[in-house]
């Protein structure tokens, strides 16, 4: 009986840890610990069938799927459609305000910046959005730099807030339906 009470208190503690942790990978590990404790509780309450199912699904398969999904979210892909001599996104010079803003933004969310040049192959911007999972599209129009991103991306709001300090940068939201087809 004592084991059951101990496991129940441990279960509550682990569940609270899962909710309040900020680090995603640690959260996944704690989630698998949660289902391990849960399955041992099932076993003590005489439901060994459920315990077997819980220990395989909860602590092996679901964490794997979570880890794959999280590691895919790590990259922030930017497509660069500026002219060659434009140093808006260049690392070296002082003028690269776009790079400064974006690296600051990526550091805030611990993302990896991936900057690629736009390949002009008779493809519209929507086509690029559809085929490759692009987060941001940088172009220049009427002397202003346009940063186009999906409106469903939540962290884009933060980028728009940060870009308010720079008068030459405009952040434009594109609806998800337009990018799909």
């Amino acid at each position: 009986m004592n084991t059951i009470i101990f496991l129940q208190t441990l279960l509550i503690i682990v569940a609270l840890t899962v909710t309040f942790l900020k680090d995603n990978f640690r959260m996944v590990i704690f989630f698998s610990v949660f289902s391990l404790i849960c399955s041992s509780l099932y076993f003590f309450y005489m439901a060994p069938d459920l315990a077997l199912a819980e220990v395989t699904i909860g602590s092996a398969i679901v964490p794997l799927i979570f880890i794959i999904a999280i590691s895919k979210q790590r990259g922030f892909v930017i497509i660069n459609d500026l002219e060659k001599d434009d140093d808006f996104l260049s690392k070296e010079s002082e003028k690269g305000i776009g790079y400064k803003l974006l690296s600051e933004f990526a550091e805030l969310y611990k993302l990896n910046l991936v900057i690629e040049d736009y390949e002009d192959e008779d493809d519209t911007i929507f086509g690029v959005f559809r085929v490759r999972n692009v987060d941001l599209f940088v172009s220049k129009k009427h002397g202003k730099y346009l940063l186009e991103g999906k409106s469903t991306n939540i962290i884009m709001n933060k980028l728009a807030q940060m870009a308010k300090d720079y008068p030459e940068i405009d952040v434009v939201f594109v609806a998800e339906e337009e990018t799909d087809d």
Partner: peptide, 12 residues
Amino acid sequence: PGGGFQGGAILA
């Protein structure tokens, strides 16, 4: 204890 579903999950 066990059965088709649990064993299949372990195989996976």
